[in-house]
Design a binder for these strands. Structure first.
Lengths: 239, 239
DNA sequence: AAGTGGTCTAGACCACGCG
DNA sequence: GCGTGGTCTAGACCACTTT
């Protein structure tokens, strides 16, 4: 019972949109009516509507009302939302995801890694290269650097599953990430493990992720076959 | 005086972070102190802090305090934030941006365009291909489709500048967009206008943008040289 | 135990769209 | 003029971290 009201109400309204109870283009009940239905204050309703607007599901017009967006971006399996960094296991389910470890090593960080992970030059980092497969198909090749001091007992058995699940189990809370998306040429690893051809384009996602206390804990480069994955972003100016 | 307080306070706190008055890693004054300093309620302060947290500038820990993020992502010129779709002119300034029109045509929409722009098959659309240059260097090649009925007097003179500025002048308010980012091969246009080589990777951004009333008004494919541009996303779980 | 941020309320006033 | 959403308040209670 400690999940906040605004989370539950957001979920409920999202459900109503998805199952057609609030059809695309239709007007939602006004904020006072929603307050009354859910027995919350109008401020709480407003907070929920703001969150849904950010996700591109609804929009509001002052003096008029709140509407369900037409043409809601369809969720396609090949599409990863560019926000939300929980990892493949959550997205596809553990049954369909498999990991192969190409490299598991420990080393001193390069100047670039020192800067990204906020480390001194003698703080060891794990260097990991993992191939991740979905339904037995190569999906993404991840080059990951993580500070050893944050997770001294990381080992290969963890890497066969989800690093995020491991972090949760250690009590480390992850909080945010910063990602940069490029197009690049396939390199030798991509050719070998993603079955790319030389000169194929690859979608590379460079990421720095940090914990709830602001400590950066991961620097990674995720390399995706050009025909296997894309990233989506929803942008909203109405707030 | 109709800019809301929360906008001004957000700007002020961002300035303090940028000029070092609130150094990276330091603790901010608590919410009560900020309420008092800015003469607003704590709710308003909280709203501001949430917004800054979403942008990855600060983070809060219940029971402890609010801190300035260490390692704040620096803005690099080659980096477009993946949110904010205002266009190049605002980003670089009109002096540095130039547009060349490769194609300006009107046609009936393909089934795909009909669906994306929510059109009937006899609603004409403009088809535009523009090469945009920054500092005389080819920067992005945009393939754009826009419904004629929304902007009946669009012509080439508009296209030499900023479409967004034109929309503003017509009273149409744009509100949001949905983007999908891929890596693809260079095509004949990219080779000719972006000076790509055959088989070069290209970063393609597929976008649907809509107006404040939810009407989709633009479907576009922006194609960027692999070495010229990347997209950045900040993600935050703390809310 | 004290101090912090997270949630929520019950109102108020304002700006805007519409008939 | 009326109904709508946008902003803002002054407080309350709770969950959490720290000492």
């Amino acid at each position: 019972m400690n999940t906040p009201k605004y989370v539950k109400i957001e979920q409920e309204i999202r459900n109503r949109i998805e199952n057609g109870e609030y059809p695309q283009g239709s007007k939602l009940p006004n904020q006072l009516a929603l307050s009354s239905e859910f027995s919350v204050s109008r401020m709480t309703v407003k907070r929920v509507l703001d969150a849904l607007a950010i996700q591109g599901l609804i929009y509001s017009r002052r003096g008029d009302g709140t509407y369900v967006m037409t043409n809601i971006p369809q969720k396609i399996e090949k599409n990863a939302p560019a926000s939300e960094h929980q990892g493949l296991t959550v997205y596809f389910g553990a049954d369909r995801v498999e990991s192969r470890i190409i490299v598991f090593d420990i080393q001193f960080p390069s100047p670039q890694i020192q800067e990204k992970l906020h480390l001194r030059k003698n703080d060891p980092v794990f260097k990991i290269i993992r191939l991740r497969l979905v339904d037995q198909q190569p999906y993404v090749l991840e080059h990951t650097y993580m500070p050893q001091k944050l997770m001294p007992d990381l080992d290969e058995s963890v890497l066969y599953g989800s690093i995020y699940a491991y972090l949760k189990s250690t009590g480390l809370k992850l909080s945010g990430s910063y990602r940069k998306i490029h197009a690049v040429f396939a390199d030798e690893f991509d050719i070998k493990y993603l079955n790319c051809s030389p000169k194929d384009p690859v979608l590379e996602v460079e990421q720095v992720a940090w914990l709830a206390d602001g400590t950066p804990f991961e620097y990674s480069l995720s390399r995706n076959r050009y025909d296997a994955r894309s990233y989506t972003v929803v942008d909203n100016n109405t707030l």
